[in-house]
Amino acid sequence: MRPVRRRALVVALPFVLAWAVVVATFAGLCDRLPDPLATHFGPDGKANGFTGTGAFLSVVTAVLLGSGLLTLVPTLRLTKGLSAQRFAVTLGYGMSGLLGYAFTALLFANADAARASRVSQPLWQLGIALAVAAVMGALGWLLASRDAASGTGPGKGAAVPRLPLAKGEVATWTRTVGSPVLIAVGAGATLPGAVLIAVGSGTGAWLIVIGLVSAALARCRVTVDRRGLAVASWFAPRPRMRIPLDRIERATSREATALSLGGWGYRIRGGGSALVFRSGDALFLTLAKGREFAVTVDDAATAAALLNTLIERDLNERDRPAAGERG
């Protein structure tokens, strides 16, 4: 089985199994279930929310298979193995266990009830659901940890691109990159936030903050020079993100989808982080201690080649003995 298919199976399987268990339980108990079903319970364990039997299966399908799809998409273009997405896989397994048990327990609680209003769900069921989630999460962590890199990217000893520079020659590479998605998010959050503030709602302030942060990241300038890599917002040179040259082991470039990097904006992933503006050309930096940083930007191959040349030059200069130390 191909690595991509194997990973897709590993990520999606718990959600599909949880959905199948709930559907099978529903089919086995359908003649004993009231209509509507009790689907929400208060702190005292008594039912206070209800859903029709027909709508129940639609909700289960949307929640379980929809969650599985959202967890699956970022792994489809993954080249470093599931170990780079351990947290997401663990969270997905835990979620599938929690939801699968909760839906199944809810059906058994409704079985043989004359009326849904008389159904109760003891609080200890929540403890069992959390225990199932913990066990499933541990299984997800184990499976993801055992999935090593696929080898599609360059290995430790693989040749990396260089940009020829004469001795003493100085070079700088810079590109501006924008994100229509972040612009849309910024506008979509700021405008409703302003309306909410105008009508006296404090929630609007949070929306405006989200909108301003998204707008600040919507267009940035990426620069490579003798100091390393720098990413600054379009409207001001500060604040900016800088990765010094001595922290970078090597640079590569390849195509990447925004979802494969975790979504748009600044993303923290297993084993590293990324600044994602859009899908397409991306610059990948292998940092000290094996961590990785990625930024999506046009002409990333030239940026990677220049960085590798500057890294090599910096190492040579640091290894060269001082004039007073020469024999």
Rank of each mutant, 00 (worst) to 15 (best):
A158N: 01
R219W: 09
T223P: 04
T223C: 14
R32W: 12
L307Q: 06
A258V: 00
G178Q: 02
R146E: 11
R242A: 05
R2P: 11
R238Y: 13
R278F: 03
R6L: 13
A148M: 10
S233H: 08
W234N: 03
F284A: 03
R146L: 12
A198Y: 13
G157M: 07
F41G: 05
V16I: 12
S145I: 07
G228V: 04
T25Y: 14
R254D: 06
A187Q: 02
D246P: 05
L165F: 04
W173C: 01
A88P: 01
A131T: 11
V21N: 01
L283T: 00
L33Y: 08
A84L: 05
T286S: 14
A131K: 03
T176G: 05
F56H: 06
S150Q: 14
W124C: 08
L261Y: 04
P74L: 06
P34I: 07
T190D: 10
E292I: 08
R32L: 11
L142G: 02
V297M: 09
W124V: 03
A55M: 07
V199D: 10
C30F: 01
D112R: 05
A134L: 13
S145K: 11
D298K: 06
G168W: 06
A294K: 07
R267F: 11
W264V: 04
L139Q: 13
W124E: 03
L139Y: 10
L70D: 03
G178T: 06
V185L: 05
G186F: 13
V224D: 09
L283R: 00
L9E: 03
A55G: 11
A187H: 07
R162N: 08
W173Y: 02
F15E: 15
V209E: 11
A24N: 06
V135P: 01
L37E: 10
E255G: 10
G193P: 06
F235W: 15
I268N: 05
G327S: 14
A236T: 04
V63G: 09
A114Q: 12
G290P: 03
G92I: 09
A282I: 00
V73N: 08
A20P: 01
K156C: 09
G66E: 09
V63M: 03
A194R: 12
M241Q: 08
D298N: 10
A24E: 14
A184P: 10
R238N: 15
V276T: 00
R226M: 15
S150V: 12
A109M: 02
A256S: 14
K80D: 10
F108V: 10
G127T: 13
L65N: 11
L37S: 05
I197G: 15
S214P: 09
T302I: 10
T286F: 15
P3Y: 07
W173F: 13
G81Y: 04
V297H: 07
T53K: 07
R247A: 07
A133S: 12
F56C: 06
W264M: 15
A18E: 00
F15R: 02
G28Q: 15
L287N: 00
V195E: 15
D319F: 01
S233V: 04
R326G: 11
P180M: 13
F41T: 14
G228Y: 03
T79A: 14
F50D: 08
